[in-house]
């Protein structure tokens, strides 16, 4: 388990605060815009930077004052950073050599990791001859070789082609499930964040905004920032909410606050909408009428922009409708999520 207790780190123009627990078998994703402090948290855990205050514990041991080399935490950088002067095998064996693992055991362990990362046969290759994905797997194998107490991954797939990412992600998941070590993953890819994580931590401006399992975060975000960052979202102000069928909401419309009347207080994901034919009513009655203004084609679905009396709404539906067409929008009860 990794624990961050009351961490503060001040850079003058940016400060970071964090309280966080990562469970023993958990894959936790730090997700947020660039500059939100995701990587800083990784670097603090790894020991590349020291907090101004607070404590970091790994497996119950306080490591706050320890240099990185005494923390036993694996770290994988975005651009692999394989040592250019060492072969694949020697890169993987680097940490074992440091630990003075006997040659025989070292060879065995390197074999294990080559198998685990599906790189068998690559042992003597020069790292410069590998593809991006292969290099990334070597970097992962190297980090895992000394059996670290935790694994930290800083946007490990961002330098890799989109097509290759899928298999690498599955790979990472398999390895993490097999080894069962606490893993922290930094990304700003929404797909990666939702797909990989046991738990998702949303960060903004150096602070943790909220955390939870991906589904909760996606469907019931606490903040507008989270809602928008995890996917596209139609937003509604208090004024607009009152004009919608009440049962669309997942709670009672709050009494008018004193805050900003133009601030959205509820969100609706585009895929919740359904088109219903004219005359037909939705599953629970009550529909919105509108006209299609734009069609974005994504293969298995389309993203329509529909002009309604409440303004433009994003709707994700099957392909088939065209611009100018009049449609009726319905959605199941409780689809609109009230923030907070």
């Amino acid at each position: 388990m990794i624990e961050l207790r009351g961490i503060r780190r001040d850079y003058g123009n940016f400060s970071l605060t964090a309280d966080l627990q990562i469970d023993a078998h958990e894959l936790l994703t730090l997700f947020g815009e660039s500059g939100s402090g995701k990587t800083t948290i990784l670097r603090l855990i790894a020991g590349f930077e020291r907090p101004d205050s607070g404590q970091i514990l790994v497996g119950g041991r306080a490591v706050t004052g320890l240099p990185p080399e005494r923390r036993e935490i694996g770290y994988v950088f975005q651009d692999y950073t394989l040592f250019p002067h060492l072969s694949v095998g020697k890169n993987i064996a680097y940490g074992l050599r440091v630990q003075k693992v006997p040659a025989e055991a070292r060879v065995r362990r390197v074999r294990e990791l080559l198998d685990l990362t599906e790189l068998a046969g690559f042992e003597d290759r020069a790292v410069s001859t590998l593809s991006g994905g292969e290099q990334q797997r070597v970097a992962l194998a190297r980090a895992l070789a000394p059996s670290p107490k935790a694994l930290l991954l800083d946007e490990p797939f961002s330098a890799i082609d989109t097509e290759r990412r899928g298999s690498l992600r599955r790979h990472l998941l398999n390895i993490q499930r097999t080894l069962q070590i606490p893993t922290v993953f930094v990304t700003h890819s929404r797909t990666e964040a939702l797909y990989l994580s046991d738990r998702l931590v949303i960060m903004r401006d150096g602070a943790i905004v909220e955390s939870g399992v991906p589904r909760d975060i996606y469907e019931r975000p606490k903040t507008l920032y989270t809602a928008r960052f995890t996917g596209s979202a139609n937003t509604f102000t208090h004024e607009k909410l009152k004009r919608l069928p009440e049962h669309w909401l997942d709670g009672p419309v709050p009494t008018e606050g004193t805050g900003d009347q133009d601030a959205p207080i509820a969100v609706l994901r585009p895929e919740k909408f359904e088109f219903t034919g004219p005359g037909q009513s939705g599953p629970d009655g009550g529909c919105l009428e509108g006209q299609i203004r734009h069609v974005g084609y994504f293969g298995s679905y389309c993203l329509y922009i529909v002009e309604t009396e409440l303004g433009e709404l994003d709707v994700q539906e099957e392909p088939g409708c065209s611009i100018g067409q009049t449609v009726r929008l319905c959605c199941p009860a409780g689809s609109i999520h009230l923030l907070g």
Binding site: A46, G47, P68, E69, Y75, Y94, V98, A143, P148
Partner: peptide
């Protein structure tokens, strides 16, 4: 030799002196 290399080495348990001989000087 970007700093990341040294950080990687240290996260693998190498002390600065060890890194000097195994990574910095060779690279």
């Amino acid at each position: 030799l970007p700093t990341r290399y040294l950080e990687t080495g240290r996260s693998l348990g190498a002390r600065p002196v060890h890194l000097l001989w195994t990574v910095e000087v060779p690279v």
